[in-house]
Amino acid sequence: MTLTPRIARVAFSAALALLGIAAAIGGWGYGVTQDNGQVGAGFLPVALGVIMALLAGADAVMALLQREERRAVDELGTLGSEVDAAAIDHVEESPDIDALGRSQRQRNRMLAIVGGMLLVALLLVPLLGLLLSLGLLMLAVAIAVERRPVVSSVIITVIAVGAFHIIFGLLLRVPLPTGLIGFI
């Protein structure tokens, strides 16, 4: 729980900077110009990679020096929106309770669970087919995560899956993968 927004931002920008450098190196290998002197396959990757590394580096440094930066900004009065955004961030960071009485920690866990379920559902597609596994995902999220009543969740899921089967599968003839079961 030490991941403050500032550290996260620095880390993300640093990652982007590294990505930019990697892209520039990869692009160099493709050749910046062609044999005839015209723009080559590596031209944009190198140029954009370098620019991205510079911008991301600048952003990381700015995030690190945020306090000084903000004072300077206030003098110019142009970056008002950023200050607003930062203020909003603060509100979100406080351990508030949402409309359904769930704490931040609970919600973080919910997010992890939904993400995990999503991954499992996609891995199950070759077995169950697309609509069936995504339908199960929908049901699982509604019942296990959102704690909706079982009966109404099942009804909504069946209607949604049915509607999609009709629209995509039958009307638009999209070849939705049916998996090993081969059901819908």
């Binding site: 995504l134 999220v141 959102e146």
Partner: peptide, 14 residues
């Protein structure tokens, strides 16, 4: 939103 987002998930992925 709790009702809405499972449907959004299904819709976007299909």
């Amino acid at each position: 939103y709790g009702y809405l987002y499972p449907i959004i998930l299904l819709t976007s992925l299909v």
